[in-house]
Amino acid sequence: MPRKLDVKTLGQAQGALRAEARRLLTDGTVSVFLGHEEGWDGLPVAFFAATPEEAGRLVWNPLVAFNLAKYLLDRLAGEEKVGIVVNGCGSLALDRILKDHRFPRERLYVVGIPCTGLLDPEKVLALPDEERERVLEGGEAGEDLYLKRCGWCDAPNPVVYDTLIGDPVPDEPVAQEYPRVVELEAMTPEERFEHFKGLYEKCIRCFACRNVCPACNCRECSLDQWEPLWMGRSTGASEQLMYHFIRAFDVAGRCIRCGECERVCSVGIPLMELNDKFLKDISELFGVKRPHVPADIEPLGQFALEDPDLEGAV
């Protein structure tokens, strides 16, 4: 039976989160609690509270942009039970890991907090000091300050939880649109080729996009293999094409549209242009309305007899 805790503000939510984590760590429900704490420069960073005292360092504010679910893979070994806090998209990431059978639900205790939107840490840091403080205290923030993914979010309420802090926020279904893909589709093939070539060339292949992605959760990544060598070790547009194709295709049908890949890209490659195309096509070809929401069987893991035929298709 899920617990529900009533709160009205972000500050109260943070207090309730700390209290809940403290309770879980005190009564031994979990041996570690995955959350965020304030980092060196004021931005939240991932934090693993291991004692009831450490639970007091947990923070909850509009800057907790980082999905924590992927850290569960580090804790696969062992029997310990793990606590984790998620908002809407964080819970999609968690659900992704669960639906991919990469972490047992029994070893999890999930604290969910409905989300009223996340701000882009980079943009908030760039604000003048006073303005930044005002926004962080819950003041109105311009739409351009929000993370890109909030613009298409249709899951602000956690989809997996054991304790829910606060009331669910009004959940208006957002029609999934892919304006950038539509824009690109309108270009000529040559223009698109040049566009993507520029994107590949910029890539430094640090793998941040892969490593941050909750859908990239294989035990061993084929990109790290030498035999067969799926992607050459040399850098350049050609190998980067291979890299970005493999990365995007391997999460096609499983991408949760969190946009973390794009957010962590240090050279600023708009990676969702690649992921969104798959989401859009899967939605259109196979009639999947919310292709980014984890399902028990993913669109590319199944088929229908009446799927459009390919032969001779151009």
């Binding site: 060339e201 040399s234 850098t235 350049g236 547009a237 050609s238």
Partner: peptide
């Protein structure tokens, strides 16, 4: 041969 061997 691959022209990509010079990299950025």
């Amino acid at each position: 041969m691959n022209a990509n061997l010079v990299g950025p």
